[in-house]
Design a protein around this nucleic acid. Structure first.
Lengths: 221, 221
DNA sequence: GTCTATAAACAGATAGAC
DNA sequence: GTCTATCTGTTTATAGAC
């Protein structure tokens, strides 16, 4: 009998697993190609070939180019904010160690994983151009940012910052700064040295802890 | 003789001026369409029609789609950094007024001129994907950033910051922060209130002026 | 200088073989 | 489940009329 209808796993790979593997390879290839050519500039043929499959396989696993892109976006659209949060969590605030670690994260995202930032930019552009997706992205972004916010809360308390400092605002500033630095570093590495992110955070948190250096204790109202 | 070969300006519009006008209209239309559809997603037909011309007019004025895009990039790729610098220049540092003005700039760029940020993102993506253009962009970016740097220098001196604070690093941080906030605001306006940019700058400059709130006077070495 | 018509290449998506 | 072949619409770019 050449039919092997109950073999638990001949070498590896059940039918469902094979399909899952194909999907995974296609998604990874899509991430590469979308990052390098952009959403509109990428062709399904190039994606399929880059994954080692044909166009047909792509269409049998995804609704089409747009569906593939959206699934990718849902999978890794969070922008690696959680990673940054973990990094921050692992070290004491304002330590040289934390700054060094932050610098490594910047280098990793800006220099090593060269597809990351362009892909995120594509996600952002797609969202901005498709209001429905924009809402989804806003919602998805809130979750990791709140994690960051929690960390910053602790951090601020440690530093004895005034209780009325809004941690969510600080979290937003930190996230925006990181994204901005990554992009600038891609264009002009010399202008964004490794230590700049950590340095900037030290400035920021010092400034939050202490009122303006030049007179004026309260600025509210 | 029906030839009017020396008429200074019949109503308006010499030949050269008419062509210049066409170029201008095409460039403006291109900015709109590239911002809304992306470089690859935009078609020369849509650009031409959006400007009120035909495809032929476009090709008679520009080498093609890419040449048009590059000319646009050279024209307005500086990213409005100079505007920010002027805004900062017009007011005292750390004033409520300056903060308010900065907020207005953020709103203007993020909410009002809705094509601006996406177009800049397209420029950045194109540069990242075309190394030759990337160098050009890095060079173009250095100029306005140095203007910002000069301002910050003065600002720091006013606040009595330590002389060893590198103004170019601060300028980079300010630029990165602004870009990051604009992009975040497009996705989730509630997370980036109008005052946040000014607020963040106040924190930042306070922190630069004063050493870390929690012990440790020098962190160097 | 701008327009209309068209050429030539290429895209996304589908149908049927295996 | 994946591949090959193909259909259909669209794209950039050009040639020639006006």
């Amino acid at each position: 009998m050449s039919t092997d209808r109950e073999e638990p796993a001949r070498q590896r790979l059940t039918r469902a697993e094979a399909k899952a593997r194909t999907r995974r390879l296609l998604l990874d290839a899509a991430a590469r190609v979308f990052a390098r050519k952009g959403f509109a500039g990428a062709s399904v043929e190039e994606i399929a070939e880059s994954a080692g499959f044909s166009i047909g396989a792509l269409y049998s696993n995804f609704g089409g180019k747009e569906a593939l892109f959206l699934e990718l976006m849902a999978e890794r659209g969070l922008g690696r904010v959680s990673e940054a949060a973990q990094t921050l969590d692992r070290h004491e605030a304002g330590t040289g160690e934390a700054a060094a670690e932050l610098g490594r994260l910047l280098v990793q995202v800006a220099d090593k994983d060269t597809d990351f930032a362009p892909l995120q930019a594509e996600f952002w552009l797609y969202a901005v151009r498709n209001p429905h997706v924009l809402d989804t992205m806003a919602a998805a972004l809130r979750e990791p940012r709140q994690a960051l916010e929690g960390l910053i809360d602790t951090w601020l308390a440690e530093r004895g910052a005034p209780a009325d400092v809004p941690a969510d605002a600080v979290a937003t500033v930190v996230a925006a700064l990181f994204q901005g630095l990554v992009r600038l570093r891609r264009v002009d590495p010399d202008s964004v040295p490794e230590e700049l992110f950590g340095q900037a955070l030290q400035w920021l948190f010092s400034g939050i802890g202490a009122p303006p250096a030049q007179a004026r204790p309260t600025d509210q109202d």
